[in-house]
Design a protein around this nucleic acid. Structure first.
Lengths: 208, 208
DNA sequence: GAGAACTATATCGAATCGATATAGCGATGC
DNA sequence: GCATCGCTATATCGATTCGATATAGTTCTC
């Protein structure tokens, strides 16, 4: 889960742990409210398995200086220059490797994890998928949600008091809205596919 | 988290692990899609700290025989009688203790965990809370969601591609609907409080 | 009566969480 | 001046949770 998120962000350029966490929180909101206790071990993991490498003398300033933290950046660089690598704790900037990109695509298409967080994360990175995979992802998720609705207690369960019932109702509504959203996305995806590869009007013979 | 959920279910009567998991999945849906690898250690934990105790010769049939699993219940009892406690693996039914009820109320009012799952779980058990605590829970959650909306990237971020943007939009909509839902609950809660304790029409002097 | 499907408990390693430690820096304030 | 607060930044620890797997009895099906 985290590996996918981190590699996805590192696809856009080298970054360090602290900033990666901030971006996870702002870009993915409640879906990726992840702690440092997960981030740093995950980055070490990815480094030892060769998916990322640390940027040694690179200038991280060139990558994320959107005004404001500039002074901080400069200070960090100055401090590093002053103290060398000895004793001083400074940034560890990670860059994705070729192997890391392959691993990222593997994780992206690997459909074992089926919870809401994994799904949203994968969808957010859907631009890296082939169109069929995008459609498959959306439809798989849709099927899961429909299935879920049938398995869960409905709000007319006489056992529930008003609070439990309200939670059940609200959850069910949320799922229904998710399904409607997925339907819109699926439709848009189909339209895009048809537009880019308009098939013959006549029926095409299919091998399967 | 799990402790709260398990104790909450056991408040309604003794139950065994397998059934507790089923009820968590059906009653709390996606919010408590928990695995056995969490359930059984959690029950052991609760047993060693005295919150629950195993029911030895109790008749579990009296508690959950809503037609259908009756034969299973009977079979389990027969098997237990046949084999005694030796070798045979049968049900371990847990019952909440007085200490467990206290612990449950502590967990319920302890407001450290602030994620969506904890909140929904607490709200589902809100009948066990005093009215002020219910209101406080709802308002705390509302404030968190409002705060969240301000911190997260909005859909008009030019950096995002259509997929990431769609996820961000949909998430934000979900949060807004959650807030609206909370507003309805807060209103209802206030109305209930006023109705049960209608204050004097005239202004009452307040100590704080 | 063999095998599939369901009920039921348990355990293992890995991932994740939440808290805490450490440390440099800038700003605030008196 | 210098004390302290808050922010950036990395790291580690114990506890919790997850996901997979093992085990075993029961019930259904063919």
């Amino acid at each position: 889960m985290l590996d996918l998120a981190l590699l996805g962000l590192l696809e856009e350029g080298p970054e360090h742990g602290y900033e990666l966490r901030k971006r996870l929180r702002t870009q993915f909101g409640l879906l990726a409210n992840v702690s440092f206790g997960s981030i740093y071990p995950a980055l070490s993991r990815l480094e030892t398995n060769g998916s990322v490498e640390t940027v040694e003398g690179g200038s991280p300033v060139a990558l994320a200086p959107p005004t404001g933290s500039l002074s901080g950046e400069w200070a960090a660089m100055r401090a590093r220059r002053r103290a060398g690598t000895r004793g001083r704790r400074s940034r560890k900037v990670y860059r994705i490797t070729t192997a890391g990109r392959e691993f990222f695509l593997t994780l992206l298409s690997d459909s074992t994890a089926d919870d809401a967080r994994s799904f949203s994360l994968r969808l957010a990175f859907a631009r890296h998928m082939p169109p069929e995979a995008r459609l498959a992802l959306l439809e798989r998720r849709r099927a899961q949600l429909v299935q879920h609705l049938t398995e869960v207690v409905t709000a007319d369960d006489p056992e529930l008091d008003i609070y439990a019932r309200s939670v059940a109702e609200h959850t069910a509504e949320g799922v229904e809205q998710d399904i409607a959203w997925l339907d819109r996305l699926i439709k848009a995806e189909r339209a895009a596919t048809d537009a880019s590869a308009p098939p013959n009007r006549r029926k095409t013979r299919r091998s399967a």
